[in-house]
Design a protein around this nucleic acid. Structure first.
Length: 324
DNA sequence: AAAGGACTCAACCGCATAGGC
DNA sequence: CGCCTATGCGGTTGAGTCCTT
């Protein structure tokens, strides 16, 4: 048996709200408020609507002090920074943008901001926005528990268009360490190679499929993504021998052009808008990335989301991770 | 000018959670 | 403590609009 419906669907109007309905709801809300019960509100207000629909209409459209129209550069930065830290927690992000609703921000991100970021990414000329995905703050989850070391990758000796160096370390974290990448995107654990050895530049990961030995090295994109872009800041991790994780992951990015005849996911090395700015194949910092630490602190100080760890990542149980 | 594809965004849906009993 | 219901949330849908050919 399924869940009981929240209202009598047969006697409830759906679809766009008319100005008359808006006026009724607004009038009722201004005079009575919700009365602590959205379900009973439509009847009291003389509306043939579901309580949930009334709530949504009020919160997203009718309530006072809502901001409509273009998002500012500052708002863009805040959204990017928070998305970096906490992912698609739209309601939390909305709490940092007075006058904006979670729905607004979600739509803005999905239709405009994500595209904007992808255009800033390297190889933008190769990207097809609708076949790309952006995921947040995976630096920690990828690297915190791995033994990945710095490695400067080299151009392939015969084909200068591709990096084909083998991974310095095989990353075998599996889903548990990649919890921010939905399992519908990834099929197996991955192997990585980094091409950055410079803490002032972001790091590019090359992902290879089916290389080397070991059961956890197979990697596949699922669904129709040609690429994904990961961005986030990363606390440093280093040791005396110079190994460790670069500081300042302004932007982590990966571009996969598909599986070639060697079953490798590769990316062109000459795809930078301005090659002179690339160091060892790494591209300039993401201009939208800023003050993430401050925002993390703010979140932590305000206890906005108390199931996030110090870096804004959700603390999940093993079960949650496996099915996330 | 028309047709079809792409994009936008308001609204819906179903699940998770909180809180009352 | 367990059940039940209202609320909140994020993902998804689809009608309307805009853009391209």
């Amino acid at each position: 048996m399924g869940r009981a419906p929240c209202c009598d669907k047969a006697n409830v109007k759906k679809g766009p709200w008319s100005p008359e309905e808006d006026a009724k709801l607004k009038d009722y809300m201004e005079n009575h408020g919700t009365g602590g019960n959205w379900i009973a509100l439509p009847q009291k207000a003389g509306l043939k609507r579901c309580g949930k629909s009334c709530r949504l209409r009020w919160l997203n459209y009718l309530r006072p002090n809502l901001k409509h129209g273009e998002f500012s550069e500052d708002e863009d930065r805040i959204i990017c920074s928070l998305f970096t830290s906490i992912g698609s927690r739209w309601s939390i992000i909305a709490a940092h943008l007075p006058g904006r609703t979670d729905n607004d921000i979600k739509n803005y991100w999905n239709t405009k901001l994500k595209k904007k970021l992808l255009e800033l990414a390297p190889f933008a000329h190769l990207k097809r926005p609708h076949h790309a995905a952006i995921y947040p703050a995976t630096a920690n989850s990828f690297l915190q528990n791995s033994s990945l070391q710095r490695q400067t990758s080299a151009y392939h000796s015969t084909n200068k268009n591709y990096y084909t160096t083998t991974p310095a370390r095989v990353f075998t974290g599996g889903y548990e360490s990649m919890s921010n990448i939905p399992s519908n995107l990834l099929e197996y654990a991955t192997s990585f190679t980094t091409c950055s050895s410079n803490s002032s530049t972001p790091t590019v990961f090359q992902v290879q499929e089916g290389q080397g030995a070991g059961p956890a090295q197979n990697y596949q994109f699922k669904e129709n993504y040609d690429s994904f872009l990961i961005f986030g800041n990363e606390a440093s991790s280093s040791s005396s021998d110079g190994s460790g994780i670069d500081e300042d992951f302004g932007l982590l990015s990966y571009f996969g052009s598909g599986v070639n005849e060697n079953q490798k996911l590769t990316f062109p090395a000459n795809g930078y808008a301005d090659d002179s700015k690339a160091t060892n194949g790494c591209f300039p910092e993401n201009p939208l990335d800023n003050s993430i630490e401050e925002i993390k602190q703010l979140i932590s100080a305000n206890n906005v989301c108390n199931n996030l760890n110090y870096s804004g990542e959700e603390i999940k149980t093993e079960e949650q991770v496996l099915y996330y």
